[in-house]
């Protein structure tokens, strides 16, 4: 009985901390961007402007929850829920620390890949249901981008799986006690990071929304909390990819002196900041250039990586 209660508490706590992380990221991103762009950023509401998070959230809740009359109502409402749900579900398999883990699945990695593939439905359905040409173009771009980048996202992780011999994420973390996988799988790491950025469609891979071209792309017609869901989905996505990078390549919670959860948080924060820094510094490639880059360079590279890892693995064992 107490175990079940613990379990429920853990899930509730995780949900709460994840959503508040996503909300806090609004502030983090705006302040960091401002720092790098010689501006102040939000600094008025509360200490260091932290209450901007509350202000933004309240604003989103109180905005009129408008559904365009020309939209496909049911799907229009469903789409933002999908992105938030799939990303949150993925967190279930991530080992934050030895005892803070919801589901220690033996196919944890596959579960993560499956969930992130489902995320594309959110973009496609949102763009389609909006019945708006900009949204549709964004959805088309999003669908093709995510499908092509998922292909080598999975492949880039197979090296790690090979070295560990398991899809279970705790096993992967424990296998990094001697050295982090980023040392033996540097190409795998870079490929996964790039695929991860594309997966969360952040600059320079924000082609589905590309505000100077498509206004806001697939979520042009969204407002209020439905827009907020897309937003939370995006920030949760960043957190998820950062957490995955840490788990798979940077030893997860492992580290000396400090408690495991702190190590995990520190490493993840580092990658979240990298995401924001990328947004501050890079322009956006063209849609077809991005696809070309994915299929002609990254996919072959991930296959070669897999081949070499496999060969070395066979040779040494």
């Amino acid at each position: 009985m107490s175990q079940t209660l613990n379990y429920i508490l853990l899930i509730a706590g995780m949900l709460f901390s994840l959503t508040s992380t996503a909300a806090l990221l609004i502030w983090v991103e705006r302040r960091m961007l401002a720092l790098w762009q010689d501006r102040c950023g939000p600094n008025r509401a509360g200490p260091l402007g932290l209450l901007i998070v509350a202000a933004d959230t309240l604003k989103l809740f109180f905005k009129e929850d408008w559904i365009p009359p020309f939209a496909d109502r049911k799907i229009f409402v469903l789409a933002p829920a999908i992105i938030a749900a799939t990303v949150l579900l993925s967190f279930a398999v991530i080992p934050f620390a030895p005892e803070i883990l919801i589901a220690d699945l033996n196919i944890g990695l596959l579960f993560f890949l499956a969930m992130s593939s489902l995320g594309v439905y959110s973009i496609v359905l949102g763009g389609w249901a909006s019945n708006n040409k900009y949204a549709l173009l964004g959805a088309l771009r999003g669908a093709s981008q995510m499908i092509s980048y998922e292909v080598f996202m999975g492949l880039s992780l197979m090296g790690v799986v090979m070295l560990t011999g398991s899809f279970r994420l705790t096993d992967i973390v424990m296998a990094q006690q001697d050295y982090w996988f980023v040392l033996t799988q540097p190409i795998g790491f870079v490929l996964f990071l790039i695929a991860g950025i594309a997966e969360t469609h952040r600059l320079p891979f924000d082609i589905p929304e590309a505000e100077s071209e498509l206004v806001a792309g697939f979520h042009s017609e969204y407002s209020g909390m439905k827009f907020g869901m897309f937003f939370i989905g995006e920030y949760l996505g960043i957190t998820l990819i950062s957490a995955m990078v840490v788990t798979l390549f940077f030893g997860g919670w492992l580290g000396p002196v400090l408690p495991p959860i702190l190590w995990f948080t520190l490493k993840t924060t580092g990658f979240i900041l990298l995401f924001i820094l990328l947004r501050a510094s890079l322009p956006r490639p063209r849609y077809d250039q991005l696809m070309e880059y994915g299929w002609k360079i990254l996919l072959p590279l991930s296959l070669i990586n897999l081949l070499v890892t496999g060969a070395i693995f066979l040779f040494t064992s």
């Binding site: 961007l33 790098w36 762009q37 010689d38 501006r39 600059l203 320079p204 924000d206 590309a210 100077s212 947004r279 501050a280 510094s281 890079l282 322009p283 956006r284």
Partner: peptide, 16 residues
């Protein structure tokens, strides 16, 4: 121009 191509930061430095 840089911002049209998705580069967010230069416009702030240049306006400064």
């Amino acid at each position: 121009f840089a911002q049209d191509l998705g580069q967010l930061s230069p416009v702030f430095y240049m306006f400064t």
